Structure formats: structure tokens, C-alpha cells
Computed example of a mutant assay.
Amino acid sequence: MIQAPSLSLPCFPLSQILHTLFMIIGFILLGGEGILAHRWGVGLGWARGPRKASHLWLQGAALGFGVAGVWTKFKAKKGVLANFHSLHSWMGLLCLLLFAAQWTVGFLSFWNRGEGRRARTLLLPWHVFVGIFTYSLAVATAESGLAEKMAFLHTKHGIPRSSLEFTLINVLGLTLAIHCGLVVFTLIPVKHKENSNITMVSSDGEHLNSKFVFS
């Protein structure tokens, strides 16, 4: 009789489970939706104000989940420094810092409108570029975390690489990569790649020129 493959995953600490859950929900799922908020808003016929608000608060929620995810590592029993020695952890901290800087700059410059029109025009392409880079970095960080977890399962618990556990992790990693590609593809359609000089109109009617389009 042929038996179906069964899972034999070890019991991970709650901090590791929450860390993975918070980071994926925050930086990848909510972060991706926050990036696309302008695009979805246009399709739904929203005015620019609600689109900006949804972008701001989705990214704020993503940042909150990211902070909570990192906090779970600070609260681990082995101490703070024990959890921040790998490339995965360094990439994660860089991602968190960039995310926080992006949200702060976006709030002060585009929502609170603390900068003048010319300053916002110059800042907008960099804000978009750093946002896309940070999101891509978040996905790359998640992939490195999955690879790190696979190495842990193989070396510490002897789980073979051909097991169902490794297959599930590979499927999750591939899903995250495809999700990232779809977000970037939706954000920059082909028609806007061909016409790289696009004029954006802000909520008060002023025009902002940018090579990237959110509306």
C-alpha cells in the first residue's frame, strides 16, 4: 500500500512563526497593495485624494506589520544580537529603514505638502524608484529567509531536500517571486514604458512630470 507523503516539520518557536507571518503580510502583501493603490483607484474611478490616502495608510499598515515582525526577533530568548548576524537579517533591517524613510518622506512631502511644487517634482521619481526598490528588496529578503530555513531543516533536523516540506517552501518562494513580478508589471504597463515622459496632476491641479506613473 502506497502511503501519501506526510509533513514532519519541527516545532518552531512562536516568535519565528509570527516573524514570518508579519513580514509577509506587511512588506509583501500590504506593501504591494499600497504601491498599486493609485492604479486600482484609477480603475475604480476614485479621486486623487482617496487614492493618496489609501496609498499612505496601506503603506503605514505594512510598516506597522514590519516593525512587529522585527520586534518578535528582538524578543527571542537568545538575545538581540543572536538574531541579527545573517545576510537575511541585514537585508531585513535595511528594508525596514528604507520603508520607514519612504513613508516619512511621502507623508511630509506629498500628503502634508511641506515641500514646494518644484521640490516635489524633483522628489517624485526618486520616491517611486526607492519604493519599487524597497519592495523588491523585501521580496528578496523573504526568499533569503526561506533559503535559510531550508538549510536549517536539512542540517539540524535531517529533513531531505526531496521531501514534501522542501517542496512547499519552494512553492511559497516561487509564489512570492511571481507576486513581485505582477506588482511591478501592473505598476509600469508597456504603454507607459514607451511613453516615458508623463505628466502627473496633483490634487490642487499642479502638474508633476515623472517617468513613472501612479495615476
Rank of each mutant, 00 (worst) to 15 (best):
G41L: 01
I24L: 07
T155S: 10
G205Q: 03
L174V: 14
L123Y: 03
T186N: 13
F84Y: 10
A101L: 15
H55E: 08
H38R: 10
T186L: 15
S86V: 06
E148M: 10
G41R: 02
A140F: 15
K149I: 04
E165F: 06
W111L: 12
H179Q: 07
S109Q: 10
H85E: 12
H85Y: 14
A76T: 09
G116V: 11
K211H: 08
L124S: 05
K52G: 06
V128R: 02
R48F: 04
A37R: 05
I132D: 03
L96T: 01
F107I: 13
A138P: 04
L153C: 15
G181K: 08
L153P: 08
V130D: 09
E194Q: 13
A101Q: 07
A62P: 04
W40M: 06
M150W: 01
K191V: 11
E143G: 00
R51D: 02
G60D: 10
F129Y: 08
P125I: 07
E115C: 07
R120T: 00
I25H: 01
S202V: 04
I178M: 12
G158K: 07
H85N: 11
L123W: 01
M1I: 08
K73I: 10
L56P: 00
H19G: 01
A76G: 02
L122E: 12
A147C: 06
A101I: 13
M150S: 13
M23S: 02
P125C: 11
G34N: 03
L123A: 15
N83V: 00
G34W: 03
S144G: 00
A47M: 07
H179W: 15
D204Q: 09
V139A: 15
M1V: 12
G41V: 03
M200Y: 10
E148T: 13
W46V: 01
L14E: 10
E148I: 06
K156Y: 09
I198V: 09
G181S: 06
G158D: 04
L123Q: 12
L98I: 03
R118H: 07
G69P: 05
I159P: 06
G116I: 09
F27D: 01
S162W: 03
G106M: 02
F22P: 00
S15R: 11
Q16D: 08
Y135I: 08
Q59S: 15
T175Y: 12
I28T: 02
S8I: 05
L168H: 07
P50F: 04
F212P: 01
M150I: 11
F133M: 13
W57P: 06
S144V: 15
L81E: 15
C95P: 02
L14G: 00
C95Q: 08
F133D: 05
P10K: 05
P50Q: 03
L174E: 13
G45M: 04
A76P: 00
A100V: 05
T20C: 10
L96F: 06
I198N: 11
V201T: 15
C95E: 10
R117G: 05
F27R: 00
Q3H: 12
L176F: 14
L98A: 11
T104G: 10
H192T: 13
R39Q: 06
T104R: 02
D204E: 12
L94W: 09
H55C: 08
G114A: 08
L182C: 09
G43Y: 14
V70T: 13
N197H: 11
V184D: 01
P13L: 07
N83G: 03
I28F: 00
H127E: 05
G79D: 02
F84N: 11
L29I: 15
G181I: 02
T155F: 07
R118S: 14
T155A: 14
